[in-house]
Design a protein around this nucleic acid. Sequence first.
RNA 1: GGGCCCGUAGCUCAGCAAGGAUUAGAGCGGCGGCCUCCUAAGCCGUAGGUCGCGGGUUCAAGUCCCGCCGGGCCCGCCA
Length: 605
Amino acid sequence: MLDKRDPLSSIELALSEEISRVVNDIGISLDKREIKFDETPDRSLGHMGTSIGFKLAKEMRRSPEAALKEIIERMNKIEGVENFIAKGGYLNVKLDVPLISREVIEAATKGHLGRGLFSGNVMVEHTSANPVHPLHIGSGRNSVIGDTLARILSFIGYNVRRHYLVNDCGLQSAYIALGKSIINDKPKGKVDHWYGLIYAAVNQAIELKKGNKEAEENLRRIRERDPELVDSIVSRIMNMEDPEKEVYEILRRYQKGEREIKSLLRSSAEEVIGGFMQTLRRIGVEHDEYDWESDMVWSGLVEKVALMLKPYVSVDDGAMYLDMNKAREKGVKVPENLPDRFYLSRSDGTWLYTMTDIAYSYKKLVEIGVDRCYNVIGAEQTMEQQQVKVGVALLGLDPDRIVHLGYELVSLAEGEMSGRRGIYITVDEVLDETAKRASKLVAGRDVGEDVSEKVTVGAFRYAMLSIDPKKKLQFSWNRVLNLEENSGPFIQYSYTRAASILRKAGYIPEEYDTSLLSSRLEEDLVLLMARIPKVLRDSVNLLRPDLIVQHANEMAKKFNKFYEEIPVISSEKNIRDARLKLVEAFKESLGSLMDIAGIPRMERM
RNA sequence: GGGCCCGUAGCUCAGCAAGGAUUAGAGCGGCGGCCUCCUAAGCCGUAGGUCGCGGGUUCAAGUCCCGCCGGGCCCGCCA
């Protein structure tokens, strides 16, 4: 029996097992895992093949083709396979396309394809941007990658929690609190943008006081957005004795939980997070929980975990650090390249993010109790993540339950973004600009009114997602505003074409004959759908959520060709029924990939 | 100095995890076509590449190994 959720893989598995059995029978060792199938370059050679002939030739002292023929002779029939072809060093397989088509179409239309392949409890921590300025496109990439990973995991059967770590116990938050404490204004405009301005102004004012020339120019630029506000911040800070010392003092009192500072800082951070939520909701991102760093400090969790680490901690001028040599003595695997010291606290007694991060890992794995947590965090923190994992191991937990999905930052053609200098492109403005472009295109069409917003979200998420996370993403307006091929809207368009055919036909056939789907294009569409479960598995194993949109793009491209070349509604009844069913399966399977990637579905556009 | 990552058409990227049947693929941009026919946000054709360089392993290397070169990140009592 073929696996309803993944027919193609079950055929491949049966093939590998059978081939390795036969090969082993004649005295040659060949593990089934060494047998992998690739597409053939030419359909006349079969659908897929494996190049084991070269290895066999050597062992059997025959030509590759002769060796393969002998193997094929001895093989049993396998469900889903029509016949075998030995060609060169390749053992090729011609699939029973009508059978596979039926399996795949049934699975796709019932929504089984790729579903429920795994089980367990996992967490994805993503976004986790510091609440000091609006989400910029770098955070946007994080959100989209993280949210898509979570959706994949959920689709393939895991129980998934999405968490956001609010970093409000760092120095950056204290800058905001300092700024807030010296002004009387109420937020103007979107609240996170307003706080972003305060953050940049405080930073640059302090730089100015320290005599940094560059600060003057930065302030001139920042000032344009709200001269009065920026001026008052600058003048107050210039009059302060030692503003930086104030910042540290604010942080110290905040971590101690002093009421006055608490209400000042925490409420500012909460307002910013509120702004983030608006933006995130717009791009389809929601978290199950916002975990506040301050809560972990105030509740004593951080203290408790620090105590557990005490045997491996040394102190330097009052500051605690994890001693990697002590960790090594304990028998924990510590990568060679890590520094000997991993500081956990400052001399003034405040915790560093490193310590709260270890405590947070403890919370995830023990208190919440997930099997595994994927941390979507910038690649620049790779070493910090390794250090945290050492801490996790010292707590007696398997460090591999923490998985770092590191992604490269988003850069601008003009240079890097910088929150401190107030240089960034926000998610909000990218979305607004894209929406403008999209609504121009939609104007005058008879489609629903939320189409341009759906197009915007599709375009944005595709643009943020479509590149391998470990490669830098160079932001360009062109990339996001591209509504043509190789974009979110391209996929959406293909989907609406399928929808349009089904709508015009007005019915879905009960009976259909898959042997009538005999064209190359129809066969290709079925095979593309059949590969979806593998794409889902790969995207998780390789930490490559971009594979999802790549595959969706391939499917859309293939369907557009089908749409242009193969008539559905006007064809003869039996053929029409088979094709309609294929279109339905395509629509549902592409739709499921769109759901996973967060690219909104539309019936018209 | 040490560690990690990247280097494929003018530009942006797939392909590298599991080496194979290519004459290395897309998109954008260029040039030329296709709407009395299921939405042209589409389709077709065409031009464009010493897969950074040099060695090695192999019957076979864009893919694996070593060494270089170029770019990025990290090696904070920042996050």
